[in-house]
């Protein structure tokens, strides 16, 4: 049997292959806009805001902004998904090492829903705001950044929320909401029904649309019919 053991040890020692490390060139696409509803703008570094369209790619440093009632769905190259809700602004960055992609979404303001695939070894996904950093690893939820505080509601998995002012960290699990304040405060508490509903809405792909129809009767009198509907 010792012979077998020696054979096995020899094989174990012989198995060590270093993973290739390939840095992505600057300006490489790291994500794309897979869905655009209503007024969505995109800004490349050093350029002006321009209208965004479905299928456009996003490089590291690009910004995306949504208007009233608008929605943008951004898919990263590793299939992680971010839903930028109305009246929100964010910047995406990505660093590729070999086949791994580390991603960061900086939220200037607004609400972002996320559905992040389980991260591989060596990968990470972060949401950052001037106040907080949320480290995501295979989970879903909503990140809401405002001038006073950041609110993180997690519907699946676990997120580590870090307050940059106080350097304090809390774990936010499914069914919990983390609140990170500009004054350095940071807490995690059970999600309220209102927050949960808001999170579910933020995770939906639809957005309110409005249809205006002008109706004219036989006498030539006109009336306007307004219909709001989900996509």
């Amino acid at each position: 049997m010792n012979r077998h053991l020696v054979t096995v040890l020899c094989l174990l020692i012989s198995l060590s292959i270093a993973a290739p490390v390939i840095a992505a060139p600057p300006g490489s696409p790291v994500a794309l806009l897979s869905k655009v509803i209503l007024d969505v703008l995109k800004k490349e570094s050093g350029k002006n805001w321009e209208k965004a369209t479905r299928g456009q790619t996003l490089a590291s440093g690009d910004m995306v902004r949504t208007g009233d009632g608008a929605l943008a769905i951004i898919k990263f190259k590793d299939n992680s998904l971010v839903r930028l809700r109305e009246r929100s602004v964010m910047t995406i960055t990505g660093t590729q090492t070999g086949n791994n992609l580390s991603k960061s979404v900086e939220i200037q303001t607004g609400v972002v829903g996320f559905n992040v695939a389980r991260q591989r070894s060596g990968e990470e996904f972060r949401f950052t705001s001037p106040t907080s950093v949320a480290s995501i690893r295979g989970t879903a939820g909503v990140f809401n950044s405002s001038t006073q505080s950041d609110t993180l509601t997690v519907t699946e998995g676990l997120v580590q929320l870090f307050n940059r002012v106080s350097s304090r960290t809390v774990d936010v699990g499914a069914g919990f909401t983390g609140i990170s304040g500009k004054n350095g405060s940071i807490v995690s508490r059970a999600t309220t029904e209102q927050e949960r509903q808001a999170a579910l809405n933020a995770l939906r792909d639809d957005a309110r649309r409005r249809l205006d129809i002008e109706l004219r009767d036989p006498q030539g009198k006109t009336n306007r019919l307004k219909i709001e509907f989900n996509d």
Partner: peptide, 28 residues
Amino acid sequence: VLFLSPEPDAVLDPEDVLISISLLRADS
């Protein structure tokens, strides 16, 4: 090959179809 869109077995309206593919995980 990672299919970014559509999702597998998704049901879509014709105008919503966007085929996007990522080769992030493909070998060198």
